[in-house]
Design a protein around this nucleic acid. Structure first.
Length: 413
RNA sequence: GUGGGUGUAGCUCAGUUGGCAGAGCACCAGGUUGUGGCCCUGGGGGCCGAGGGUUCAAGCCCCUUCACUCACCCCA
């Protein structure tokens, strides 16, 4: 109890769990590579203002969830709570964005949010991110959505629900917001929950997302965004839906799909699962035209997604531990014979031949050593007992077949 | 931040109205004088989360505290 323990909301991933992450990363590289995306790695720490600007001052993420501190130079720094802002900062800083030409980048790694941990939510969690910069066309939205689906199915994850929506743009969204607020005002808004009475003014879109039954009932007849979006947004969304359809991806329209980060415009999407606790979002994303410019870059549009790796891990089959090629057992329990030295050197030679395996550092009974070899699923057990050692030999037992033979150790030179 | 649940062996968990600290799995040894998996027998292992209180007696009751966990808010 007196030993130092990890801090709340942070996790250690031992091989049983880390294998899942390694596998996801490998699949992401393979799938995204087929779409022409290149990997970008950005720092985990950024200046606080990048997130404040990029995510939105009024969001929960910026308002109460960031790990922010001042460094020794009195700069305010923040551990990244999401990836997009950092990716855009890097792309802008290195002039990687050419308006009118697509730039495709993906990244993955840890994100940090100071929240109360629960199932599917950690303070340090991991995301896979992809961003397609420079294209405002609906084809870009669809490419990203299809790539996400491609990635998820490469992991063998089924029973996922794709939800799509359009939030409109800077031109038409204010009108929708006003209509929503007017709707709630006209209603008996005392029936709304406390949070929603506040939200109907600050962010009426959020009310649509409320889970309180009374609010849900009132929201049922609220104006739908599709009726308020401008011609351009409507055409864009129609094109996206049509293409997604033609690509054969099943989805549901969710007019109440509101995302938590301020920068989304037009297309938004979310992938959900009912099998990972009360947090259902596995991945989410959308279009963020205007964000690149807001962060000081060219006026280039963008679309992308983030995918929660811990949540994916809950849905995946765990990759099996690899079976070692050998286990080198030492059963010569006499003192000072040098059998342990001989074992180590023999194991070294086996590895030089490309074989994998572990080697005893302590001699034990035949029974216990063989049991261990079986337990770690070694393909072969190399046995170095007193007889073998004195003869300069080793017994090699096939753990599957059970047959064995004696070989000279020198044969492995 | 606000609620609920749980802290006992390396792991998963029992533990009755307060009365000697338990099981399964894992580990070690033996049954089988040098041969794994199945079976049988035995063994090592514990500040019962921590601190205080009540009591002849506390894993159990009371207070405090810490940790973990689930949920709300919100999100991946």
């Amino acid at each position: 109890m007196s030993s130092i323990q990890k801090i709340k909301g942070f996790a250690d991933l031992f091989p049983e769990d880390s294998r899942s992450f390694t596998h996801m990363e490998a699949q992401a590289r393979a799938v995204f590579g087929r779409y022409g995306f290149g990997e970008l790695r950005t720092p985990l720490l950024e200046r606080t203002e990048l997130f404040a600007k990029g995510i939105g001052e009024d969001t929960d993420v910026v308002g109460k969830e960031m790990y922010t501190f001042t460094d020794r130079g009195d700069r305010s720094l923040t551990l990244r709570p999401e990836a997009t802002a950092g990716v855009l900062r890097a792309a802008i800083e290195s002039s990687a964005i050419e308006p009118g030409r697509a730039t495709r980048l993906y990244t993955f790694g840890p994100m940090f949010r100071y929240e109360r941990p629960q199932k599917g939510r950690m303070r340090q969690f991991h995301q896979v991110n992809a961003e397609l910069l420079g294209s405002a066309e609906p084809q870009a939205d669809v490419e990203v959505i299809l790539m996400l689906e491609d990635f998820l199915s490469s992991l063998g994850i089924a029973d996922l629900c794709f939800e799509l929506n359009s939030l409109g743009c800077r031109e038409c969204r204010p009108g929708y917001r006003a209509a929503l607020t007017a709707y709630f005002e006209a209603l008996d808004h005392a029936k709304l929950c406390e949070d929603c009475r506040r939200r109907m003014h600050t962010n009426p879109l959020r009310v649509l997302d409320c889970k309180v039954p009374a609010c849900k009932a009132l929201v049922a007849d609220a104006p739908v965004i599709g009726e308020h979006t401008c011609q351009g947004c409507r055409g864009h969304f129609a094109a996206v839906l049509s293409l997604v359809d033609r690509a054969g991806l099943k989805y549901t329209l969710n007019p109440r799909l509101v995302r938590g980060l301020d920068y989304y415009q037009r297309t938004t999407f979310e992938v959900t699962s009912g099998a990972i606790g009360s947090q259902t979002a596995v991945a989410g994303g959308g279009r963020y035209d205007g964000l690149v410019k807001l962060l000081g870059g060219p006026d280039a549009p963008g679309v992308g997604f983030a995918c929660g790796m811990e949540r994916l891990a809950m849905l995946m089959d765990k990759p099996e531990a690899p079976c070692p090629d050998f286990f080198l057992a030492v059963t010569d329990t006499r003192e000072g014979t040098g059998a342990l030295d001989a074992a180590l050197l023999l194991a070294h030679k086996l590895r030089a031949r490309g074989l994998s395996g572990e080697c005893d550092y302590q001699a034990g009974s035949m029974k216990s050593r063989l049991r261990h070899a079986g337990r770690i699923k070694a393909k072969k057990c190399y046995i170095l007992g007193a007889e073998e050692f004195d003869a300069g030999q080793v017994t090699v037992k096939d753990m599957e077949e059970g047959d064995q033979l004696r070989l000279d150790i020198s044969a492995f030179d």
